[in-house]
């Protein structure tokens, strides 16, 4: 053990250099860890997205099936409506209810509404004039 300050300084300098050298030659793990983590995340992310896409595809498939079912149901209801509107069915139902076609026609004249075209009386008179105008 020396107490020479110069030697001590020299030894301290050497230890410092070694420590620095050791520090400098220490393997750089962080980038690798980051890289590995990125790859792993990307890998699982890809798998997850693939699964999500598959799940979405299944859901889409199911929805398309339901749309087809609803469309078919809609068509069936349309047919049902048409069958309910069948004049023969309505006629039969009316007969069962005892409804009858009115024996007498009653026409209502609404003064505020002007009839289109010539008054029927005028038109018939014109037709008669056509006949009587013949020599």
């Amino acid at each position: 053990m020396t107490s020479n300050p110069a030697v001590l300084r020299r030894r301290a300098a050497i230890e410092l250099d070694e420590a620095v050298a050791l520090q400098l030659h220490k393997p750089k793990l962080r980038p690798w860890i980051v890289f590995t983590l990125t790859v792993v995340v990307a890998f699982f992310g890809m798998i997850y997205s693939r699964i999500s896409l598959d799940r979405t595809a299944f859901e889409l498939d199911e929805l398309e099936g339901r749309i087809a079912e609803e469309e078919a149901r809609f068509l069936e209801l349309e047919v049902e409506v048409a069958q309910l509107l069948d004049p023969a069915r309505i006629d039969q139902a009316a007969a069962e209810l005892g409804l009858q076609y009115p024996a007498e026609l009653v026409s209502l004249e609404v003064p505020a509404i002007e009839a289109e075209g010539l008054d029927p009386g005028v038109r018939l008179a014109q037709l008669d004039n056509l006949l009587s105008a013949q020599p």
């Binding site: 047919v79 069958q83 069948d86 004049p87 023969a88």
Partner: peptide, 13 residues
């Protein structure tokens, strides 16, 4: 299987 079917809602009309 699903196949289209022709329907005549008004029957004989």
């Amino acid at each position: 299987a699903t196949e289209p079917k022709r329907i005549y809602p008004f029957a004989s009309l």
